[in-house]
């Protein structure tokens, strides 16, 4: 187990309603896991607490010793004075050079690698940002809408590549795409309104690892389960 949260309660200063109340969650096995819920229910706050970027919560947060947790989000930018190639090269460890080439190719960024960040489309920006995180040393990577503005087919390709290339790492993927979450995630942590008890539910996704179409009935059942849980 890399991550465990027990009775997590968090409230932003100068607000009256807490974001979480006695939330419990654990991440037991590596793989592709998801956080799902309506906007404003606390997915990003949860992710930032796990990444150590937000403090002031009560309850217990356990992260396995020396584990590296990275949090990436879709509004991050690269500096503007150089090309994408320059910034990716300068932050890629030598052990990941081969992986870098593969990811650039599979993420569909070969044509824009010599452009500057400001010259990219929103989807390209998000893919570039995700690549540089994937090339870092990490145990758990939280991807907060990291594939927003990327077309459906390419998103699937990217998720499958991540699952194939990093089988021993943990991923927490935040997305509003119900079908994508259901198909590709192992564990889905569903965030609900603060009034609902319990505030979060954990469901199992289909954890598909290839392009094969999943069993239709199973997919529909899981999608309905997730929808009903929200």
């Amino acid at each position: 187990m890399i991550l465990s949260l027990t009775n997590l309660t968090f409230q932003y200063p100068d607000t009256e309603i807490p974001v979480f109340r006695t939330l419990n969650f654990s991440l037991d096995s590596p793989g592709f896991h998801a956080l799902f819920g309506a906007s404003g229910v606390g997915k990003t706050s949860f992710a930032r607490i796990v990444a150590g970027e937000l403090t002031g919560f009560s309850g217990q947060l356990y992260i396995k010793d020396k584990s590296i947790v990275l949090y990436s989000y879709n509004q991050e930018r690269l500096p503007g004075w150089g090309t994408i190639r320059h910034f990716i090269d300068s932050t890629t460890p030598s052990s990941m050079i081969e992986m870098k080439k593969q990811l650039i190719d599979i993420f569909g960024l070969s044509d824009c690698i010599n452009l500057r960040f400001s010259q990219l489309s929103l989807g390209q920006k998000n893919r570039v940002n995700l690549i540089r995180y994937l090339l870092q040393e990490f145990d758990l990577l939280i991807m907060d809408e990291s594939l927003a503005n990327v077309d459906e087919r390419l998103r699937e390709t990217i998720i499958l590549k991540i699952k194939e290339s990093f089988p021993d790492r943990y991923f927490l993927y935040i997305s509003h795409n119900l079908m994508e979450i259901t198909k590709f995630s192992d564990t889905i942590l569903i965030f609900r309104d603060i009034e609902k008890i319990p505030q979060t539910l954990t469901l199992k996704g289909l954890d598909i690892a290839s392009r094969e179409m999943p069993d239709r009935d199973r997919l529909e059942t899981t999608v309905l389960e997730v929808m009903n849980a929200c």
Binding site: Q75, P79, T91, N129
Partner: peptide, 25 residues
């Protein structure tokens, strides 16, 4: 924050880079 976050969380931030980012922006 949107630019510096990556360098901070990956421990790659140096004061020269921080100054360059802020001056450029």
């Amino acid at each position: 924050t949107d630019i510096e976050h990556f360098y901070n969380v990956t421990s790659r931030m140096r004061w020269q880079l921080e100054v360059k980012i802020r001056a450029f922006e």
